[in-house]
Design a protein around this nucleic acid. Structure first.
Lengths: 148, 148
DNA sequence: AGGAAAAGCTTGACTTCCTCAAGTATTCGT
DNA sequence: ACGAATACTTGAGGAAGTCAAGCTTTTCCT
């Protein structure tokens, strides 16, 4: 409807979101580095509250399965994760935290929360608003949109 | 104190923010791929509304300057950016869009806005709320470089 | 049941991104 | 004027990503 305001505003919203994403990434990298890990390795730990197949994790990351092979190789070498064969389907390897991996996961999650709150200036009284906003944004169905 | 609610809520906020960051990244990668670029290359184009030194861009990315050398090499090879010598300080190379680069930048910015809005389910009536929230979050002073 | 197709993972070749250490040019400070 | 700092590049090397090809196991079809 030839509304000139909306696109202009949208540009500012995009800038803001990209800024938030950038700071989030910087936090992930710096928390990871503190434990001699990479941001993706921390991402893997975060997902592994419960075991997940390599295939499922590749989809979570929107990446090729062969990429996950290398990622898991490195994390397994650190003794944080095991590949556990699924008894019902021997093609599947379930990624499972070792006790060491689980301890590190708890510690790292706490640090991510603390540092991210600091990086964004998140105050406790903001939580409600942010949660409501996030809930309304992400269209809970994880539909990755442009599927031509 | 000893408020058990706050940390629990904070965890949900963190999850939401990471989800937003993830979708943002997916959008950047897919827009970039559509033009045979990478997400970082698109990031460079976005920054170059006006010329920027390599040093400044490395700080923007929080990365080592030598990384920018390679990044710019590739984008220069595509004819999107030029290294222009600064007449006042011959150490400095100002990154400058070529006409081709500028045209591509406009097109890509529009696509990022459109696809990001779709990926997050951003409605025009959300803009105001998002903008206010973003403004209150990011501790406005984006204090990157104390400029001597 | 038996064989082709599909699913889950790995391997190998290759690119990009990224860091660190070292090196070159240029400018700044005293 | 000379040493220190700044801006960038180069080279070595790791992590992360893609694609194509291959192996094993499961599923599907008839």
């Amino acid at each position: 409807m030839a509304d000139a305001r909306t696109p202009r505003e949208l540009d500012e919203v995009v800038d803001g979101l990209l800024e938030v994403a950038k700071r989030t990434h910087v936090v992930m990298v710096s928390v990871a580095a503190r434990h001699d890990l990479t941001a993706q390795q921390v991402g893997l730990l975060r997902v592994l509250d419960e075991p997940v197949s390599m295939r499922a994790f590749a989809e979570e990351l929107s990446c090729d399965p062969s990429n996950v092979t290398g990622l898991v190789d490195r994390v397994e070498r650190l003794g944080l994760v095991d590949r556990v064969a699924d008894p019902d389907d021997r093609r599947i390897r379930m990624l499972t935290l070792t006790p060491k991996g689980r301890r590190l996961r708890e510690k790292i999650n706490a640090e991510v929360a603390r540092d991210l709150a600091a990086a964004l200036g998140l105050e406790p009284e903001d939580h409600g608003r942010v949660l409501r906003l996030i809930a309304s944004l992400t269209p809970t169905d994880a539909t990755p949109p442009p599927r031509p």
